[in-house]
Each structure stands twice: as C-alpha cells, then as structure tokens.
Design a protein around this nucleic acid. Structure first.
Length: 777
DNA sequence: TCATTGGGCTTTTTT
DNA sequence: AGCCCAATGA
C-alpha cells in the first residue's frame, strides 16, 4: 500500500487524488485482486470509480483491457467524460464502458453466428416480447385471463435472469410443479415456443442479451478465453442491482485475472422486480478468497438532518451490510412532512412551495425535483406546475422511443434490416391501412410455420404457394408490401441510414395517415417523427467522428433499443425534474419533494406482502430521501384519484418509521384556499399559512398518534367561507374539463356530496368538494 | 373479410 | 382517463 501511495505522489494524478478522503484514496489506488467498495448514498462513489480508472490507465494499463459496467448509458458517458478530462480524450475513448446490455450486445453481434443468430439480430423490447407471448398464448388457445401475457412475460424473464433455460426448466420438477400448482401447467411450453420464435425471428430480448452471453461463454471456451484476456480489469457499478445472469458473466470474465472491483450500496438495491439479486453484493466476500473491503461512509451530499432521517428509516431493514452513514455537513432544515387534501392540492402545494423557495433563496428550477412511486402520479404535479408557469421536464414514463409513431417508423427500419423480425412485421403490415387483416395474417403465419419459412417469404411468394387460400387481390397486397420493403433494402445499398428512414417516412404514407385528422396531438406526432430523423442524422454524424464508429441502420436500431430514458436530451436546461424514484437513483437535487407517501402507493400495494418486498420498498424510500441536498418534503394526501376514482389514503408507514427528531410536521392546509374552489388560488399569490399542530406536542408522542391527529383534521367541518355549490337534481353546471352537464343525482352530504352528472363526455360521478364546478342559472 | 366502434380492463418500478 | 380487444356492421 505504501508503495502505491508513493507512486501516486509522483504522478500528475496526485493533484486529483487530493480531492479524495483517505478511504476513497485507498480504494482508488488499490490495484490488484478482488475488491468491493461499499458506498453509501452521496459518498462520492462515482468520483472514486473515475479516479480509479484514470489511475489504472496512468499506471500503464491499456484502456482496451479495462471493462467498466454501469447501470445506465448516461452514467457511462459521464464517467467517460470525466476520465477523459484527466487522461485525455484519445485514451479514454478506448475504454469498454457501458451498460451490461449494450456491452454484451456489442460482443454478441461479433459472435452471433456461433449461436446461430444473424449478426444483425433484432433486439426485442419489452413490448415486443409481450406481444410475441400474447400471440403464442392465442395460438395455443389458452385462457388469456389465466395466462396473462404480462405476467407470463415476467415469469419467463425471471427464468432467463436466473439462467433457467427451457431445457433446465423441463429438467426441474419443482418449477414445473410450482407452475402447475398456480394453474399454469403450460408455462414451460409457452416458454419453449417463445424462445423458438425469437430464434426464428433473429431476435433477442433484453434478457437474452445476458443469457446468450452466458451461453456463449460457457459453450465456447476459446471465446471465453479471448474476453478473459481482453478484460484484465473489470469494474462493476451499482453491483447491488445485478441479477444472477449478470453475476455469472462477471464471474466468468474475471476468473482469470481476478481484478474485479465492484461498487454498490445494498441499501439502494431497488430492482428485485427485474431479477436483481441483493445477495450478489451481500455475498461478494464469499465469492473471492482475498477480498479487500472499502467502506465509504461519509456523505458529502445532504444535511445532517436528511442523513440521519434516512438512517433512521433504513434501520428498520434486517437484511443489510454493516455500515453507518454520517456527514460533516450542517444540520440544515428538518424534513418537512405535510398532508394535503388531494393529489391536485399536493401538486399545487409543490408548485407554490417551489415558487416560494425560488424567491426566498434565489434558486432556479433545476434545483428542484419531484419524485413519486408511479408514473401515473406525474399528471397532477404537471398540471399544477403548468398553471404557475414553472418549466418542468418529465423523465421516463413514455419515453420518446416508446411512442407509437416512433415505434411504427422503427418497425419499418427493423424489418428492412432483418426481414425475419416477426414483431416488426406484425406491427406495420397493416399500418398505414392497406387492407391486410387478421384473417389474412393468420393464414400467412400458419403457412410460414408449415413451410418452416419466415412470414416475409410467404408474403413475397403469396401467388406461388400451394394451398394458401387467399384471393388474387389479397395476394397482390401482400406482394406489394414485400416489394416495398425490398425497395427500401435496395435503397439502403446506395443511401445512408438517415436517407433510408426519410424514404420510409415518405413512401409508406405514415405522415399522411397521421395528418389526416389534424388534431394538435397529431401535429406533435409528426414533429416527433421529424425529431427521430434529426436524431438519426446526429447519430450518423457522431459515428463518423469515432474511429470504429458504425453509422449503419442496424447500429442505430441497437442504440435505440438499449437507450435509457435519459439518453434523449432536450435543450431546455433550467427545469424542475419530475420522475419516479427509480429513475432518480444516482441523481441529487438541492430540494426534493416526495409525493404520494401513502400506504398502498408508497409502499406499493403490489409489493408489501412479504418482508423482502417491504424492505425493498423501504430501500426505495431511502433512495428517494437521500437524493436531497438541502431540504426534503414528504407529502401525502387524504384522497387521490386512482383508476379515475377517488380513493382514501392513509399515511405511509415510512413516515412513522422516521425518527421524529428530524421531522417538521405541518398541518394540512385548508382554511384559506377552501374558498377558492372556483378561482385559481394562484391569483392570491400567497401560500397557505403553516401552523404547528395544536395537539401534537413536539416530542414524546408516537408518530402513530400524530398521524391520527392529522387524519382527524380532514373530517373537521368545512369552513364557512368555503363555497360548495348547492346543487339539486336537474341543475345545469359547467365543469372546467367536461364542459356543460346536467345533474342526474346526488348522494352524501357536506364535503362528501357526490353528484352524478351527465356531460357530453358521458356520465361522471364527481365529489363536489374538489370539482371545479360552476352552477349555471 | 376488414374496419370501426364501444366496452372492458388497467397501473409498480425498467435494462 | 387511456389502451386493447371483441363484437358488429359494411
């Protein structure tokens, strides 16, 4: 160790290493052998990782021999940039750095033929997989309520991530038994069919990229040796989120040199639903003989209050590694806890609070983030921010590449690159409409199976194939479609990827189809397609600047398939960030609002039945809270729209679990804005008054009690100045969104009055207290 | 045989 | 409130 420390000081790195504390420094310069860095939230893990890689390179390790696996493309890109700033661009770009999926997709392209796949194999996204499975279930004539495509897909995904191949499945009586017991005896058969179909389609799904890599490394020792020799130093970020399949790949590749460095925080393991195995990090020390352990426990990100509050909640988890996060940062504000009446008010509170903080502390939009458990929650917040003219950006949700119009164009491109791509073909064969319906398509696929050919072959030869009972007109339609695709393929020989895409957009009539209704949404969809073309143009540009760049359409498609949502960068910078807690991992913001802290929502009702599930939800909450640098707001509501219905909420248990020493409870806000049912509260420009809870003495009562008190506040009588329109059956009303309507019936009383009203849009049941209703005389 | 319309169901998180 | 699917009409 002393030797290395000495070497350090004699290199230009020394000036960078000064930025590291003692443990960080030791971890950065530890050279050989297996090591684990347990890095608490905000403990400077990325910094250590980048310096470590830069350091290795400075020690003369060839960047070609370093493999760094990250969780998102963005993390890889940023780390690369930071390394480049230390060791220089030309060195850094030769690093193998990226997500598991993108790195191994790249390797699989090179080695695909060994596995019987074309090197231009398609990558099926989650939707493709699900549709393929739905089709299989249909073809097998199974009960689709029993075999829900989505859950079958996730089950298959679990098999794959655990390296249970079809054969392994059928060799495992326990699995078969389990599926039989859950009344799904055909699981194995579906699984087999799905794998066969993907193979025939020349397609790999996300899980295949890892599973097939394992297959490659196991079946071909020389291939394994090749990559073992290449990757002499392996670093894995976010190790707590690796699944079994990834674990095996890493172990296989690291087996020769054992220079494996994993970094992670078990307390931030939040991807079990997609197969992540927290045991990987918990057991790392058992996997290698002489593991050196580094613990980064000093937090540089958050105030003391936030760190301690976060610690107090994660302490409720049993399954974790021993560590204690601390900080030298100032005490800071307490974490604010607040109940709101509804999701709409929650949004409004957030927007008002952001405005207030901006004014008081001279902040920008980009200093704020709103985090939530489910994407559906973004809407209420969005509405509120828009009303106040606060610029925001939603990350995730329906990402750009998942929009229908984009997927349609991409499906054409996929089919051009790989005519075997069944899901692409299904998607566009009748879009825009060209009179090829289900019946025809079914026949085509049946015939294709019979002949053991691709569907595309059947299209091309429709008129020549025996016993294909299609009339002349239909045959022509099919052939025309095939001819069109062939035309694009030919076109591709002389034109670049951008030009091909433009040709597709023009020739297929997609634009025309979208434009025919000319609603505002349609215009934005056309713009999206334009945006896709621009993106493709950029892509070609970028690739041409890279030595081994690949500007082909196939390469673009792979990029798109594996793009993480952060990869589409918009120009607007100063915006409030809205995203799920999952998306927020690894990020930090001065001010963080965590919305919807209600039982059943966060923790999610789907994930609170076992201790393990609940612990994962708790880690998720821990992640959310530790994103905040200066101040965190914990918000929950009394009622919220879910599935289009109003539902009652109960405060999340996580609020109760927090040590109240670090919390500042606020009363639910009412009074003042109660009067504003018909007037946008923003015109008053002020925030509702905060007032300390009367009943709740500061300390010395259980949070449980306190929450009960908070709940009580909701049933207090409506303030006098609050106007609820007195309605009777037969009244004409106007609703801000639904327009004019007729009151059909009333039920309940006081704040609880609900009215059934007939609008043009149909019959709606509305709680008067919240509805923006105007009585028409 | 195909397209349209209305009904039913849905939501947890994502590479 | 939105998406997918099934029955129904053309």
């Amino acid at each position: 160790m002393y030797f290395w420390a000495y070497r350090i000081l004699s290199t230009p790195m020394s000036k960078f290493l000064k930025d590291l504390n003692e443990v960080q420094q030791k971890a950065a310069i530890h050279k050989e052998g297996p090591m684990i860095i347990i890095a608490g939230a905000g403990s400077g893990k990325t910094r250590v990782l980048t310096y470590r890689i830069a350091y290795l390179m400075e020690q003369g390790i060839d960047p070609f021999n370093i493999l760094a696996l990250t969780f998102t493309n963005k993390a890889a890109r940023e780390m690369k940039k930071r390394i480049a700033s230390i060791v220089g661009e030309s060195e850094a770009k030769n690093l193998w750095m990226g997500t598991f999926h993108s790195i191994f997709a790249r390797i699989l392209r090179i080695e695909a033929e060994k596995l019987g796949f074309p090197s231009n194999f398609t990558i099926y996204d989650a939707q493709d997989s699900q549709r393929a499975i739905a089709n299989i279930i249909k073809d097998m004539q199974l009960d689709k309520d029993l075999y829900k495509a989505k859950s079958v897909a996730s089950r298959i995904s679990k098999y794959k991530n655990s390296l249970i191949t079809v054969r392994a499945y059928f060799n495992n009586p326990e699995l078969i038994e389990a599926d039989t017991l859950s009344k799904r005896p055909k699981m194995g058969e579906i699984y087999k069919n799905y794998v066969d179909r993907c193979f025939k389609a020349g397609a790999m799904d996300f899980d295949d990229l890892l599973l097939r890599t394992n297959e490659l490394l196991t079946k071909f020792p020389n291939v394994l040796a090749k990559y073992q020799n290449r990757f002499q130093y392996i670093l894995v970020d976010e190790y707590q989120d690796t699944n079994h399949s990834q674990y095996l790949i890493v172990r296989a590749l690291a087996d020769r040199f054992q220079n494996i460095c994993v970094v992670g925080d078990d307390s931030q393991s939040i991807y079990a639903f997609r197969g992540a195995n927290i045991q990987n990090i918990l057991n790392f020390q058992k996997d290698y003989a002489d593991v050196v352990i580094f613990k980064l426990e000093q937090n540089y990100r958050s105030t003391n209050n936030i760190v301690k509050a976060a610690n107090s909640v994660i302490d409720n988890n049993k399954m974790k590694l021993d560590k204690a996060l601390w900080t030298e940062n100032p005490e800071g504000d307490k974490v604010e806890v607040r109940q709101l009446m509804s999701d709409a008010e929650e949004g409004r509170y957030i927007s008002e609070s952001i405005l207030e903080n901006k004014l008081k502390n001279q902040l920008k939009n980009q200093d704020f983030a709103v985090l939530y458990r489910t994407n559906a929650q973004s809407r209420a917040v969005e509405d509120a921010l828009r009303k106040k003219n606060i610029k925001y950006r939603i990350y995730g949700g329906l990402s750009f590449y998942q929009r229908k119009e984009i997927k349609d164009v991409l499906a054409y491109l996929r089919l051009i690159v790989n005519t075997k791509d069944e899901e692409a073909l299904r998607r566009i064969i009748n879009y825009p409409l060209r009179g090829i319906g289900h019946t025809t398509l079914d026949k085509v696929f049946v015939k294709a199976n019979e002949l053991d050919e691709t569907a595309f072959y059947v299209l091309e030869n429709a008129s020549r194939i025996q016993n294909l009972s299609l009339n002349r007109g239909t045959q022509t339609k099919l052939a025309d479609f095939a001819v069109m695709i062939r035309h694009f393929q030919l076109f591709m020989k002389t034109h670049n990827a951008f030009e091909v895409a433009r040709e597709v957009v023009n020739k297929t009539g997609i634009i025309k189809d979208i434009e025919k209704d000319a609603t505002p949404e349609d215009i934005s969809r056309v713009e999206n397609i334009q945006e896709l073309l621009n993106g493709l143009q950029d892509f070609i540009q970028v690739q041409s600047n890279i030595d081994e760049g690949d500007a082909s359409l196939a390469s673009f498609l792979e990029n798109v398939a594996l793009a993480t949502d952060f990869d589409v960068q918009k120009d607007e910078v100063d915006v409030v960030s809205l995203m799920t807690v999952h998306m927020a991992k690894g990020l930090e913001f001065p001010y963080v609002y965590i919305a919807g802290l209600e039982e059943g929502l966060f923790p999610s009702a789907m994930n609170m039945n076992t201790r393990e599930d609940l612990e994962e939800e708790r880690r998720l909450f821990y992640v959310a809270l530790t994103r905040a640098e200066k101040k965190a707001y914990l918000l929950y509501t009394q009622m919220r729209f879910r599935w289009g219905k109003l539902t009652d909420g109960e405060p999340s248990r996580f609020i109760e679990e927090l040590d109240e020493k670090y919390l500042d409870f606020k009363t639910p806000l009412r009074e003042k804005d109660g009067a504003n049912q018909f007037v946008d509260a923003s015109i008053f420009g002020d925030l509702p008054q905060d007032r300390p809870l009367k009943t709740g003495k500061k300390i010395g009562f259980t949070p449980q009690k306190k929450l009960v008190v908070l709940n009580k506040a909701k049933s207090k009588p409506v303030p006098k100045n609050m106007v609820i329109p007195e309605l009777k059956v037969g009244d004409q009303v106007r609703h801000s969104r639904f327009g004019k309507g007729l009151v059909k019936s009333l039920e309940g009383k006081g704040t609880d009055t609900r009215a059934t009203i007939a609008f043009d849009a149909g019959l709606k049941k509305i709680l008067l207290q919240f509805a923006k209703l105007e009585k028409l005389s």
